[in-house]
């Protein structure tokens, strides 16, 4: 096989549209507070865009860019930020930097309306793609995880 993946037309179109797909995912996940959407839906779109890359450019290309530890790190980092933000809200600022985050106006960005959907997008996007990769590669080789 000389060329990995699909034809050059599909590759070019994917390169152009990929940014828009990710932008749309961010829009969906931030829109979820008042309208339809939310972190879960946005995350699913992110994961589907990764799957799209994998189908178009071939497995090796996609996995060279997104190693399993990157996906794992993104998922866990998202979950940890989520947990921290939730703890700030739950305990009313009784955690490290909590009072700062609660009170200061400049840190309103770290509010549940922005942070939580974004983290959820991170978790779901990276997590679903990791699961997809795991299910695809499970039958091929056992040792994908221990590179």
């Amino acid at each position: 096989m000389i060329q990995k993946g699909m034809s050059v037309i599909v590759k070019t179109v994917t390169k152009i549209t990929l940014g828009f797909i990710l932008l749309y995912a961010v829009y969906i996940s931030l829109n979820g507070h008042t309208g339809p959407g939310g972190g879960f839906a946005g995350g699913v779109i992110v994961a589907l865009s990764f799957v799209h890359i994998m189908l178009v450019f071939g497995k090796e290309m996609a996995l060279k860019r997104l190693r399993s530890y990157v996906l794992r790190g993104l998922t866990c980092a998202g979950a940890l930020i989520f947990l921290y933000a939730a703890t700030v809200k739950f305990s009313g600022g009784c955690v490290p930097f909590g009072a700062f985050l609660e009170k200061s106006v400049s840190c309103r960005l770290f509010n549940s309306e922005i942070t939580l959907p974004f983290c959820e997008m991170l978790i779901i996007g990276a997590g679903l793609f990791a699961i997809f990769v795991a299910l695809v590669l499970l039958s091929k080789s056992d040792r994908y995880d221990s590179e």
Binding site: Y69, C76, L83
Partner: peptide
């Protein structure tokens, strides 16, 4: 009481970051 749930969850997500 909430830390009974938060601490193990935080540990569960911190462990994969240091996996390798």
């Amino acid at each position: 009481i909430q830390y009974l749930i938060i601490v193990p969850l935080a540990a569960a997500f911190l462990i994969p970051l240091f996996a390798k």
